[in-house]
Amino acid sequence: MSTRSGEVVVVRGGLHTTVQDTGRDGYYSLGIPPSGAMDRFSYRVANMLVGNPDGAAALEATYVGPTLEFTDDRRVAVTGASAPVTVNGEPVPTWQVLEVRSGDVLEFSMLTAGARLYIAISGGVAVPVYLGARSTYTLTGLGGFEGRRLADGDRLPLGEEEIADPPRVGSAVEEALRPDLPDVALLRTMIGLCSYRVTEESMRVFTSTEWKVTKDADRIGYRLHGGRFDFVDREPPHGAGSDPANVVDLGYPLGSIQVPGGDEPIVLLNDAVTAGGYATVGTVVSADLDRIAQAKTGDRVRFESVDLRTALEARADRHARLERVRRALREQGAHA
């Protein structure tokens, strides 16, 4: 086991690559969303592969991967979306422990499925911890690497390797344990919050429509197209505002679905506003936020109404899948 720290050179930053971890807890009431990796399963597996502790900071790249040049020996793993990956121009597998040396260059081609790549590097990305996390929140420039997405020429600090028996180089996550990246992502959703504002017929349309992801789809939220909501007539309550979609401003759960104009619903994600005055009609369960994170502009999503028990089962399933990955990696042997 080595104890050293170094850096990795960002030759090209890609389209939107940020440093993320499990996110920032405890600041929601100040209007600071948790941020953090959007596809938590892929992020966690990437860390597991390189032997990082849970919660180590990794890179999340949207649509276009970065080009990274290493300055020392590291283990690296790429998970999440599908894309051809090369080291020094030679194709290398994803969902597998790779070994790189000083001067090696990791590069990506166009994504073939999914929207977000996760790149974990042994030792983790060692940007300073800010408000309890290394996650980047670009809207106000908090955390991560200088509070922003990575740019060409950045040099990211890397941490010391901490785990004594990391998975062996070449260890891989079998296909069956990787997330599927379907054409239509099914999002299990707990209906509620302010769904009383919307007619029953509209809520039926909501769960039977295949919604299309518009170009307004980022870490803040996904705007969807494909149907419309009719509101229940009412006398606006004091303080709400006169628009039928207005409610007295309230907190928005991460994953909640707001319906500002009645036409394009917005699923609020990791960097979203924490509160506001538009009606929300339900919340995507946490396990399926991984799925919407891998939906890209033009893809379709569908909402399925579930109860709390199903939501918790989905969460437990994801956890069990992570443990199966951990076990499978252990069975493939430790790093020499």
Binding site: V248, G255, T283
Partner: peptide, 15 residues
């Protein structure tokens, strides 16, 4: 419930 990670409590619809 706002999914499995949030609990929302409405005390009134009017301010």
């Amino acid at each position: 419930h706002g999914g499995d990670e949030f609990v929302f409590v409405e005390l009134d619809r009017a301010m």
